[in-house]
């Protein structure tokens, strides 16, 4: 993988921004949610979730506008589409593996049963949300990897 080449394309810059926003906003949300879970295993409020989504949209929009202004060429070609298609496959595998892990855990009801995260609806809700975010992160990281390494 060629990391010495710092000539990031418009698409790569957009991906780095999306990855950064996802990690910061959802990282903060999950840190707060999982630390509070042991003390208060209540379901999160809809307002709390809407706030997180709005935060992602606002930060993402600001960064994408900034990147668009910086780059004159914003076109997409066959290589971009192929890389995106491949990355969806990896995102699917991450989501699939995590979901199967949770399903088996719930079915066997044994290994981690003492943990609040596996035994309360709120814990399971946050785990499922975390799996979706992890799949999205994998989707971004794989694209960046293929842009640098090549196909």
């Amino acid at each position: 993988m060629d990391l010495s080449n710092r000539d990031f394309s418009y698409r790569e810059q957009g991906l780095i921004a999306s990855l950064f926003v996802t990690l910061i906003v959802f990282g903060g949300y999950f840190y707060s949610a999982f630390t509070k879970l042991a003390l208060n295993p209540a379901m999160p409020s809809i307002a709390e979730l809407i706030f997180v989504v709005i935060l992602v949209i606002v930060f993402e929009s600001i960064m994408q506008i900034f990147i668009r202004l910086k780059n004159t060429s914003q076109s997409e070609d066959e290589r971009d589409r192929l890389i995106e298609k491949i990355s969806y496959k990896y995102g699917y595998w991450v989501l699939s593996a995590c979901t199967w892990f949770l399903l088996v855990q719930l079915l066997l009801d044994a290994t981690f049963d003492h943990l609040t995260v596996f035994s309360t609806p709120s814990g399971i809700f946050h785990l499922l949300l975390l799996f979706f975010v992890l799949a999205e992160v994998a989707h971004f990281v794989v694209q960046l990897y293929y842009y640098r390494r090549g196909l």
């Binding site: 060629d2 000539d7 394309s9 418009y10 698409r11 060429s73 076109s75 997409e76 070609d77 066959e78 290589r79 971009d80 842009y147 390494r149 090549g150 196909l151």
Partner: peptide
Amino acid sequence: GVTRQTIIAIEKDRY
């Protein structure tokens, strides 16, 4: 009808 990055990738044998 492709991006400059794709031309660079083709030249460097990465695509």
